[in-house]
């Protein structure tokens, strides 16, 4: 881990012991985040994106079991901390924005009380200073009449406003790392764009490191520096946004990009792209490539043995049996960035 790195995850695995066998929610995930960088984690529902985030925050469900050779945040090994030490970091040095703004605020307390809570917990500040900070951040996230909003209850706010409140809440202690778990999924399209714009601005202004979890490749293209594509609990490809969108290496990434309709290129009347087949069960023995059953390049090797990781330079890599030279240049419709 370089001194500039904010977060380094090595071989993170999250499993759930079920009666039918072990469920591998996150399977051997590793990545490094430099300070000030924005990493997008993309993948479909159930691919382990959120579980990866929860593992970093130590907010996994009780039944989950976590293994990792390293979970280093600001040079500190998180797996060595107990819950009390971890709660000192949570909401303080790292914060999270959730997918569901409608239900993520406690209905019984005012917006102001919920905003101030985090800073009162982690810093030795007076209530008036905490209030001051809450006001400042509400204005920062674009909420007008902030002073009166502080006295309002969550049910008096719209979804977009609530998500802005959640963002302000995450910023209360000026964390080094913000994990945004599908922050725009529950919002309508115009609000989505506003919230994404806001997150980018805030990330630049406060020089924060951001993990943006999403299933929306458009969000990734707009907001992030680097992307990790997850499939069935594993990272199958990572790279800079431009690299990944221009020359996807993994068949899954290629097929994902093919699914996006492009104005001017996608023919009128043609079907929208989709990937045939479905995600395999994550329970029990998972040897072989998890994408094999949907992949057009599938061989016997893919079915029986775990694919190797090909590292290309410092930023790129993918998980596949095909060598880089075996992969023909991506000729999909592509996405203009």
């Amino acid at each position: 881990m370089k001194p500039l790195d904010c977060l380094e995850i090595k071989n993170l695995t999250v499993t759930f012991p079920l009666s039918a066998g072990t469920l591998w929610a996150v399977n051997d995930v590793s990545f490094t985040l430099a300070r000030g960088e924005t990493l997008g984690i993309v993948g479909e529902s159930g691919c382990g994106k959120s579980m990866t985030a929860m593992a970093i925050m130590n907010l996994l469900p009780q039944a989950a079991q976590l293994q990792a050779t390293g979970l280093t945040f600001n040079g500190q090994e998180l797996t060595a901390l107990n819950e009390s030490e971890m709660s000192d970091i949570r909401g303080n040095r790292m914060a999270m924005i959730f997918q569901e703004p409608m239900t993520s605020l406690n209905p019984a307390f005012t917006v102001g009380a919920q905003l101030m809570e985090a800073i009162l917990r982690h810093r030795k500040v007076k209530k008036s200073e905490a209030r001051e900070r809450a006001l400042y951040l509400l204005e920062k996230v674009g909420i007008t009449a902030a002073a009166s909003r502080l006295r309002q209850y969550p049910h008096e706010l719209s979804g977009g406003l609530r998500q802005r409140v959640m963002i302000a809440m995450a910023l209360m202690c000026s964390p080094d790392l913000i994990i945004a778990d599908e922050p725009t999924t529950a919002l309508d399209v115009t609000i989505q764009a506003q919230i994404l714009h806001l997150l980018t601005e805030i990330q630049r202004e406060f020089e924060m490191t951001v993990i943006m979890i999403t299933h929306d490749l458009g969000v990734v293209a707009n907001v992030t520096d680097r992307v990790a594509v997850m499939y069935a609990g594993r990272i199958v490809e990572t790279g800079l946004v431009s690299q990944l969108f221009e020359s996807p290496q993994h068949p899954y990434t290629q097929k994902l990009l093919d699914c996006i309709p492009v104005p001017g290129k996608t023919k009128r009347g043609s079907y929208l792209g989709s990937i045939p087949g479905r995600v395999p069960s994550l329970i029990g023995d998972l040897s072989g490539c998890s994408f094999a059953n949907r992949c057009s390049f599938c061989t016997d090797e893919c079915l029986n043995n775990d694919p190797p990781w090909h590292q290309i330079g410092s930023q790129r890599g993918y998980l596949c049996w095909r060598n880089p030279e075996q992969i023909s240049p991506y000729k999909g419709q592509g996405v203009s960035l």
Binding site: M57, L59, E83, S84, S87, D88, I89, R90, G91, N92, A95, M96, F98, E100, T103, S104, L105, N106, P107, A108, F109, E117, A118, R121, H122, M166, M169
Partner: peptide
């Protein structure tokens, strides 16, 4: 099991605070 309890925990609040206040 609700989302706002997850939010409270994500803020780093002490377990007794999450339980009895939120």
């Amino acid at each position: 099991a609700s989302d706002y309890i997850r939010t409270a925990r994500a803020k780093g609040l002490k377990p007794q605070n999450v339980l009895f206040k939120h």
